[in-house]
């Protein structure tokens, strides 16, 4: 039973420590960047950094890099179908009223929010 045990790839500790350090650095980076307003670019940068951090965790902590490829294929199909879900929902909600502008607007949202100025 112990014959073919060598196959499990045991990564040296420095991989984990390096990943950990980079993750902390990226967290600090994303917080720092968030202090300035880049307008529409805000979400793009935030998502970019988050994707970097996520891929680090995936490859090293979860070991996708040294693992059987089928696990990575499973993970990517999951992401692909999530992308489809977002894409088609945006296709509808983003393009509402494309043939008749009356359909696009939402009106009359009645919510008991006490407005700031009315309050103080």
């Amino acid at each position: 039973m112990a014959s073919q045990q060598h196959h499990h790839h045991v990564a040296p500790v420095k991989y984990y420590v390096a990943t950990f350090a980079t993750l902390l650095a990226l967290t600090i980076l994303t917080v720092a960047v968030a202090q300035f307003d880049f307008g529409a670019m805000n979400i793009v940068i935030a998502m970019g950094v988050a994707v970097c951090k996520a891929s680090l965790v995936l490859m090293f902590f979860m070991g996708l890099l040294w693992d059987k490829k089928i696990n990575a294929v499973f993970f990517l199909t999951g992401l692909l179908f999530l992308g489809l879900f977002i894409g088609f929902c945006v296709l509808d909600i983003g393009y509402r009223g494309d043939t008749d502008p009356v359909e696009s607007l939402q009106y009359g949202v009645k919510v008991p929010v006490r407005h700031a100025e009315a309050e103080h």
């Binding site: 979400i43 499973f74 993970f75 992401l79 179908f81 999530l82 879900f85 977002i86 909600i93």
Partner: peptide, 29 residues
């Protein structure tokens, strides 16, 4: 076991993915 776990993980991703879709749509609106 590992393959089964990864199948479970993509199920979790889509589970939270639904919330992220709602988030992006309402942030856009």
């Amino acid at each position: 076991a590992k393959l089964g776990m990864w199948a479970f993980l993509i199920q979790e991703i889509l589970f939270f993915g639904g919330l992220f879709v709602a988030y992006f749509i309402f942030r856009a609106m």
